[in-house]
Design a protein around this nucleic acid. Structure first.
Length: 298
DNA sequence: CATTCGTGGAT
DNA sequence: TATCCAAGAAT
């Protein structure tokens, strides 16, 4: 019998982290027992690069308006973009809408429980497919997000920060750290992620409150500082992304098609503004109409 | 493997 | 004030 529980060190983390989670997990709507796979899926899309606190209100109104995939699938994609509000990365709204349509067409309107089927949906990558399969269906998958990568980098590898971008090595490490049985693996997935979100944070980890500090390879090594290549910060002021955001904000706020003049007023640099607008149209986030008017896609 | 893609709170 | 960074995906 092959032992899938990985190294003794990894498996020694399970009990303390699971107990910590039972006592300290945040109460979040998508974790409620009756939430359902669609609720989990909506939350996962919104949480891709957006903090929990900003997601909560949008999540609630979204599910109230579109309680099932078929409801969203029947709506105009522009309505999804509008309801996305200012969560950021509005292409996620478009992809969630497209995923809802795919679920209706390919899966009878029910979120599939199969990892490969999930992965085939628009906007669902390795992380999100594993997250839905694990959180909504209790399956055993390595759910590797930025929190888990950081927890494992510190606890097992002994370094302050994980690699800048996810690697195959991260996946292997997370898989080797997975408890052998399915229900425990599913609990470990949320618990290790929550530990990264609340205790083993990027900036100032709260090691004093950490349930595995005595076993943590990084702490045992004296918490050495990060020594890898510089992590390049994201500038935002004056970027195309900011220009796109301004243009889209005008269109979200409008209930009727907007004139080009209106859009021109939202960003000073004409060259950049045109490039941003073309990009939005190419991405399907904006629909050009006759007489230089624009709206969210219908 | 590196870039692009929003937004705003925390430090 | 400037920087960091937050449950990634697509290209």
């Amino acid at each position: 019998m092959l032992d899938h529980s990985g190294s003794p060190l990894a498996s020694s983390l399970h009990e303390p982290v699971l107990r910590w989670y039972d006592a300290n997990a945040r109460v979040l709507p998508w974790r409620e027992p009756g939430a359902g796979a669609w609720a989990v899926m909506v939350s996962e899309f919104m949480l891709q690069q957006t903090p929990v606190n900003r997601v909560l209100p949008a999540y609630r109104s979204w599910l109230e308006r579109w309680p099932k995939p078929v409801d969203l699938a029947a709506a105009a994609p522009g309505e999804a973009v509008r309801a996305w509000d200012r969560l950021g990365y509005p292409r996620r709204a478009l992809r969630l809408h497209a995923a809802a349509q795919a679920i209706v067409e390919r899966h009878g309107g029910e979120v599939p429980d199969d990892h490969a089927a999930l992965l085939a949906l628009p906007g669902v990558g390795t992380y999100t497919a594993a997250a839905i399969a694990s959180f909504a269906f209790g399956q055993r998958h390595a759910v590797v997000d930025t929190n888990v990568r950081r927890v494992l980098a510190r606890a097992l590898t002994g370094v302050a920060q994980p690699s800048i971008s996810p690697t195959a090595a991260d996946q292997r490490l997370a898989t080797s750290a997975l408890p052998a049985d399915e229900p425990t693996a599913a609990r470990w997935a949320v618990a290790s992620m929550e530990l990264g979100a609340l205790i083993c944070t990027a900036r100032t980890p709260r090691c004093a409150d950490c349930p595995i500090r005595s076993r943590c390879a990084w702490v045992r090594a004296g918490s050495p500082p990060y020594d890898g290549p510089p992590r390049r910060g994201q500038t935002y002021e004056g970027t195309d992304r900011q220009a796109r955001g301004r243009l889209l904000a005008v269109l979200r706020a409008a209930s009727a098609p907007v004139s080009k003049d209106m859009l021109d007023a939202s960003w000073p640099d004409a060259v950049q503004r045109e490039r941003a607008l073309d990009g939005l149209v190419a991405d399907g986030l904006v629909e050009p109409l006759a007489r230089k008017r624009y709206r969210l896609p219908e």
